[in-house]
Every structure is written in structure tokens, then in C-alpha cells.
Simulated scan of single mutants.
Amino acid sequence: MTLHTLWLFIGAVFLVSATPGPNMLHVMASSVELGVKRTFAVMAGCLLGLLTLLAASAVGLSALLHALPGMFTVLRVLGAGYLLYIAVKTWRAPVAADEDGAAPVIRPEISPLRLLRRGYTISISNPKAIVFAAAFLPQFVDPARPQLPQFALLVAVFTVIEGFWYTMYALGGRALARHLVRARVKRIFNRVTGGLFAGFGLSLLAFRAA
């Protein structure tokens, strides 16, 4: 892999990762509810899920899904079902603001492990990422050179850039939280967020691997 190719990959991933998706939306919504510091556990879960999908693609799971379309359909339906579950849960989330108009109350009962698990589940619920990785990453790999180090470098770069955008969305969510102290506004935010999760879930249901 040449330096020019690596820079092309960095630019492409920077734009791809910036695009809002279930992970970014979940990070932003978590930051609104919990604050940036506690959202790091969510971000770690999302990154771990991303690494799982990239690793699955690297070991040939994408080819298996193409060979067994029924398996992809099962994963797609399960992933869509989970996103729709999150959509309903977010839409119906209880709303309360502090009496003095401060930021929304943080719920300390949610453990970091549970937040990490939630982020991980959101991340791996999208089997489209396996197909995308299988089509995207090999374009930047030089077949004349050892492929494993190249894939490792690409995955590392992808993870760093994805983590950067998670942080940006978390900071944006916390800034947005200042405007959500009124119950009516927070309820609207929850329903918009739930609607977007539903849209992601329905999009996944409609997706067909080529």
C-alpha cells in the first residue's frame, strides 16, 4: 500500500464515518442523557462492535453470507428488529427536567458495562457493515504485498477516525442537552430520535445484499 493510497483511504473513511447512522445517533442520544464522560462506555461498545464486524468481514463471513442468503436474511431481520425495539423504547422514554431548569437528570443506576453492552449490540445489529467492509477495504490493499499488515493498518485507521466522529457527536449531543431541559422539547427530541432509529431499522429490512 502506497502513502497516496493510505491518504485516499483516510479521506474516504473520514467522509463515510461522518455520515449519521445508528452508532452516531446512539452516541449522541446517550450524551444528551448521560453526559460525555459516561458516554465513553457507549463509544467503546460501538467501536468493539465495529471491530467485530470488520474482523468478520476479513475472515470471510461476507462470502459466507453471499453463499447462504438465508443466513444474511436472519441476521438482517434480527438487526432490524433490535433497531425497531430501540426506536419504540426511545419514543416512549419518560421525560423529566430538573425543577431549577438545569440539565436533565443523569441516571447513575446504568453501569458502564451495561452501557458498553448496549453500544456493542447497536453496532453489531447492522450486518450491512460486513458487506460494506468486504467491498470497501480490499480496494486499498495491494495484492502484491502481505495483506494481513495492510488490513490491520486499514482497520486501525478506520477505528481511530470512527472514534473521532463518536467524540464529535457526543460533544454535539451534550451541547444540545442544554436546550432540552423543557419536558416538551425533550419529548420531541426523543420522538425524532426514535423515528430515526425506526428509519434505520426499516432501511435494514429493505436492504438486499448484491
Rank of each mutant, 00 (worst) to 15 (best):
61 L>G: 01
139 Q>V: 05
16 V>L: 11
67 A>S: 15
35 G>F: 02
206 A>H: 13
193 T>P: 01
182 R>H: 10
169 Y>A: 07
79 G>Y: 05
82 Y>C: 07
68 L>S: 13
129 A>G: 04
44 A>C: 05
116 L>N: 02
41 A>H: 04
81 G>H: 02
132 F>K: 09
46 C>M: 12
158 F>D: 08
95 V>P: 02
203 S>G: 15
15 L>G: 04
204 L>Y: 08
209 A>Y: 12
190 N>P: 00
164 F>N: 04
168 M>P: 00
66 H>T: 13
117 R>K: 13
48 L>E: 06
184 R>H: 07
120 Y>H: 10
84 L>Q: 02
179 H>N: 06
1 M>R: 05
23 N>C: 10
208 R>M: 14
145 R>W: 04
132 F>A: 15
166 Y>G: 01
26 H>L: 09
193 T>N: 11
58 A>D: 08
175 A>V: 12
12 A>P: 06
60 G>M: 05
162 E>Y: 12
108 P>L: 08
167 T>L: 15
36 V>P: 01
46 C>S: 13
111 S>G: 11
195 G>V: 11
27 V>Q: 03
106 I>P: 03
109 E>N: 10
97 A>M: 11
202 L>N: 06
198 A>M: 11
175 A>Y: 07
60 G>D: 13
132 F>S: 12
27 V>D: 00
133 A>N: 07
178 R>P: 05
182 R>L: 01
75 L>C: 11
176 L>T: 02
130 I>M: 13
93 A>K: 15
109 E>M: 04
147 Q>Y: 03
20 P>I: 05
70 G>D: 08
87 A>F: 02
178 R>I: 04
137 L>P: 02
86 I>G: 04
119 G>P: 06
87 A>Y: 04
17 S>R: 11
191 R>V: 09
192 V>A: 09
3 L>R: 08
42 V>W: 01
189 F>R: 10
112 P>G: 00
101 G>Y: 11
168 M>D: 05
91 W>M: 11
11 G>H: 00
122 I>K: 01
157 V>Y: 04
26 H>N: 05
56 A>V: 02
101 G>T: 13
59 V>L: 03
33 E>P: 02
58 A>F: 07
160 V>A: 15
20 P>L: 03
191 R>E: 13
45 G>D: 07
45 G>Q: 08
108 P>G: 10
111 S>Q: 09
133 A>T: 13
8 L>R: 11
96 A>P: 01
209 A>L: 15
21 G>S: 13
181 V>Y: 00
125 S>W: 12
143 P>C: 10
4 H>W: 11
103 A>T: 14
114 R>C: 01
117 R>I: 10
48 L>P: 03
188 I>Q: 14
91 W>Q: 07
146 P>M: 00
13 V>W: 11
